[in-house]
Amino acid sequence: MQSLQNGEWKPGEGIPSETELAARYGVSQGTVRKAIDELAAENLVVRRQGRGTFVATHNEARSQYRFLRLRNDVNESGHPKSRYISVEKVRASTSVAKQLDIKPSELVYVVKRILDFEGKPLIFDEIWLPGVQYKGLTLEKLQNWGSTLYGFLEAEFGVRMLKAVESLKAVSALPEQAERLMVPLGTPLLYVERLSITYAEKPVELRRGWYVTDGFSYRNELY
């Protein structure tokens, strides 16, 4: 975990073999295998038959939409298309600073975007990112990126989202949400607030999303 956190092994790169790791840490190969199994279960590494073990990345197909839970009630195939609206640099409010574990009034980037499903706007996101962590973020860079936001943040800034804590509730569309999602004012929406976390339990993204759920459901798996 320390080597992953320190960037010794980058996303997408292979880690040393079990034999090499056993020698490095002075433990049995079986112990190393169990440790790697735990990392794989947490989506930190990926085993590839005959090739070895690799650091998981948001830029591989199996992980690109791991955090997206909105699914078509009829057809679960297909992926949304991001449409970035703006990137603004502002001072963090007290509540945002507390959630991101930064000082109040620190600079943060606010990204606004729409996620379209089959040409229909279904999600309006407001994404808060610590300024120090994502220095140099621009709307142009996001618009020129061809994959997911998490893939971009990993490739451009070396930040990997390991897990997220979400809260959901029903709300009514306010003027901005109604305009962005092309629905009448007061339309029932699903509000999803997500705090994404990287190594060492460090919060690195606060996301507030408004979802249109006509014909779609927010699906999760509970264990």
Rank of each mutant, 00 (worst) to 15 (best):
V74A: 11
S82P: 08
A35H: 08
V108Y: 12
G52V: 01
K89F: 06
G30E: 11
R48E: 14
I102G: 00
H79G: 07
R113V: 04
S82W: 07
R33D: 11
V90L: 09
S105P: 06
T31Q: 13
F67W: 12
S105H: 10
Y109H: 06
L70N: 02
L70T: 04
R48N: 03
Y25P: 01
R91I: 14
V90G: 03
V90R: 12
R83P: 03
L44V: 05
R62D: 14
V55W: 00
S63G: 06
L68R: 10
V74F: 05
V111R: 03
R47N: 10
V27R: 04
G78W: 00
V45C: 04
R62I: 12
R48K: 13
L21A: 05
E42P: 02
R69K: 12
L44M: 12
S105M: 13
R62G: 04
S28R: 08
Q49F: 07
K89T: 07
L70Q: 08
V87D: 02
V74C: 06
A92K: 02
Y65Q: 12
G26D: 07
V74K: 05
K98D: 07
G78V: 01
E60W: 07
Y109P: 00
Q49T: 14
Q99A: 13
K34L: 13
F54Y: 15
K98Q: 08
R91F: 12
G26T: 05
K103L: 15
D101Y: 07
R47Y: 11
S77H: 01
R62Y: 10
G30D: 10
E20P: 00
E38W: 09
N75V: 09
I114F: 10
Q64A: 13
V87T: 02
R91Y: 15
E88V: 13
H58K: 10
Q99L: 14
E60N: 11
P80K: 04
